[in-house]
Amino acid sequence: CRAAGTVAGTEFRFVGEAGSNLCQGCWCCRRPARASSRASSPARPNRPPPPPPSGPPRSKVHTYGYNAENPLRIQTHAERTKNFFLVVGDWGKAGGPGPCQVAVAEKMKAYVRTQREAGNNLLFVASVGDNFYWTGVTPDAWERQWASTYGTWDATSPLYQVPWLSVLGNHDLGNDDTYALCPEKQPLATLEGKHYGSKQFNADRNPLRPDAGCDDAGTVAAEPARCAKNTSFYWLPDYNYHYELPAAGLEVIALDTNDQAIDAIGGDAS
């Protein structure tokens, strides 16, 4: 009897009880050892590379319809930890500004002033929705609820011309901004086949912005008072968008999640 294995070209295999380590009589078989399957397998023929795809080359760049690479030219501090931003939401007030809104705005200004004195740099204000209560923006709300409250048009304010990166909330989709949620019914603008209806969108998608058209020097010269009401740094290019600040190692992704609360759209059960 031999232990299972290959000896002198003969292969001994166990065919009896499991765990047996000796070949005993009929419990063992012997046969010439076979070459390994790898050695006996024929070599695979070299296959030619697949042909190149037909048709025009595909673009690797997705077209968003807006510029995401810091279009507002936000300045960053070379030391990353010296940069900061503010986040505010539900800041609007019907007929406002209200006392709570004013109090929060003053705290924001005081905080920014203190941070700047410490050598820190405000990048932007992130506005996370419900910006103009109760039922969307009105023509006078830009000045009454936003500019006068936060000092965005006041050169002495710490928030003067600070960019606001905004997104829509359910109160921004009410009767005062009737087609914000269904722009295909009455679009304010159509870009690349997509309709836009919100009166908060950037001026290229919303000709009802107070300073729409004021990127033209002739318009500024002809209408200086209107063009002084600068809303171009209130940034809302689409329902969902992203904003890149490579120098600060930061990317902002703005998502409209109103589909998660359809019953609350409009803010006043409209």
Rank of each mutant, 00 (worst) to 15 (best):
C1N: 11
R2Y: 15
A3I: 10
A3H: 14
G9C: 03
T10G: 00
E11G: 00
E11I: 00
E11T: 09
F12E: 06
F14Q: 13
F14R: 14
S20R: 14
C28D: 02
C29W: 07
A33G: 04
R34T: 10
S36R: 12
R38C: 05
A43S: 13
P45E: 12
R47Q: 14
P49H: 09
P50H: 07
P52C: 04
G55N: 06
P56E: 10
P57T: 09
P57M: 08
P57V: 03
R58D: 10
R58C: 11
K60G: 15
K60I: 13
T63Q: 14
N67W: 00
E69F: 12
R73L: 13
I74A: 00
T76F: 07
E79W: 09
R80S: 12
T81D: 14
T81I: 04
N83V: 06
F84L: 05
F84P: 02
F85N: 08
F85C: 10
D90E: 11
D90P: 08
D90A: 07
G92K: 06
G92H: 08
G92A: 10
P97Y: 09
G98H: 06
G98E: 09
Q101D: 06
V102Y: 06
V102Q: 14
A103F: 11
E106P: 01
E106Y: 06
M108H: 11
V112N: 01
R113G: 08
G119R: 10
N121V: 10
S127C: 08
G129R: 01
D130K: 03
Y133M: 11
P139A: 03
E143H: 11
E143V: 11
A147R: 02
T149P: 02
Y150I: 01
A155V: 07
P158T: 04
Q161F: 00
W164I: 08
L165I: 07
H171R: 05
D172Q: 02
G174Q: 03
D177G: 06
L181R: 10
K185Y: 08
Q186A: 15
L188I: 05
G193R: 07
K194N: 10
H195Q: 13
Q200P: 05
F201E: 02
D204Q: 09
R205T: 01
P207N: 06
P207T: 09
R209K: 07
D216H: 02
A221H: 03
A221I: 06
A225P: 00
A228D: 07
K229I: 07
K229S: 07
W235L: 03
W235I: 03
D238A: 15
Y241G: 02
Y241R: 03
A247M: 11
A247W: 05
G249S: 05
T257M: 13
D259K: 12
D259R: 13
A261G: 09
A261K: 13
A264L: 15
G267T: 02
G267D: 00
